[in-house]
Amino acid sequence: MTLPRSEISAGDASVVFDAVSKRFAASGGNAAFTALNNVSLTVARGSITGIIGRSGAGKSTLIRLVNGLEKPSGGKVFVDGVDVGELDEAGLRDLRRSVGMIFQHFNLLSSRTVFGNVALPLEIAGMDRRAIERRVRPLLDLVGLADKHGRYPAELSGGQKQRIGIARALATEPKLLLSDEATSALDPETTQSILELLRRINAELGLTVLLITHEMEVVKAVTSDVAVIDKGEIVERGHTFDVFTHSKHETTRALLSGLAGSKLPEAVGRGLKPAAAIGDRAVVRLTFFGAAAERPLISQLIQSVGAEVNIIAGTIDEIGGKPYGSLVVAYGADAETSGKAERFFSENGLVTEVLGYVA
Results as ranks from 00 to 15, higher is better:
S27M: 00
A254H: 06
M1H: 10
D280H: 15
R134E: 06
R129V: 11
L69E: 02
Q160R: 12
L140W: 07
T352F: 06
G325Y: 00
G28Q: 10
D88G: 02
A330L: 04
A185R: 13
L41T: 07
V99Q: 13
Q104L: 04
L195P: 09
E236Y: 10
P138C: 08
K71I: 00
D280N: 13
L109A: 12
S304C: 10
L198R: 03
E133K: 15
S179F: 01
G28K: 06
D80W: 07
P138S: 07
A171I: 06
G56L: 08
A57S: 15
G271R: 14
S338G: 09
A171S: 13
R97V: 00
I278D: 03
S21E: 00
S27C: 03
P174M: 11
N37H: 15
G91C: 05
D317V: 02
I166R: 10
R45C: 09
I229M: 08
F345N: 00
K22W: 01
L205K: 15
V79F: 13
E215F: 00
R134G: 02
G238M: 02
T337L: 11
E181H: 10
A10M: 05
I312N: 05
G238Q: 04
V209W: 08
I166D: 11
V43L: 13
A282W: 03
S6Y: 03
L92F: 03
R199Q: 08
K71M: 06
G74C: 07
I51A: 03
H105A: 03
A313T: 01
V99A: 10
F106R: 12
D80S: 13
D12R: 14
L355D: 01
V114G: 09
A10Q: 14
D147Q: 07
L211E: 01
A44K: 15
E189Q: 15
I166P: 10
T191Y: 06
D242Q: 14
V222S: 05
A291Q: 14
D242R: 12
V136P: 10
F288D: 01
R270Y: 00
A292F: 01
L210C: 06
G321P: 09
P72N: 13
V77R: 13
L65M: 10
S326E: 05
I212W: 11
K248P: 00
S98L: 04
I278G: 02
V20L: 03
H239D: 14
L350D: 09
H249P: 05
L140R: 10
T213N: 09
G144T: 09
A169D: 02
P4D: 01
E189L: 04
E215V: 04
V16F: 12
L140E: 04
M127W: 04
I51F: 05
S262N: 14
D18A: 12
E233I: 11
A293W: 06
V328C: 07
R5V: 00
E196N: 11
S184D: 09
H214F: 12
G269W: 04
G144V: 11
K322F: 12
L210V: 15
N117C: 07
I316P: 00
L256S: 03
G290P: 04
R343S: 12
E347T: 07
G238T: 03
I48S: 09
V305I: 15
L297Y: 10
A276W: 02
A333N: 04
R93I: 04
G269E: 15
S338Y: 07
S179Y: 07
N202T: 06
N30W: 11
F241W: 12
A119F: 01
P188R: 05
A291V: 11
I229C: 05
S247H: 14
L62A: 15
I48H: 01
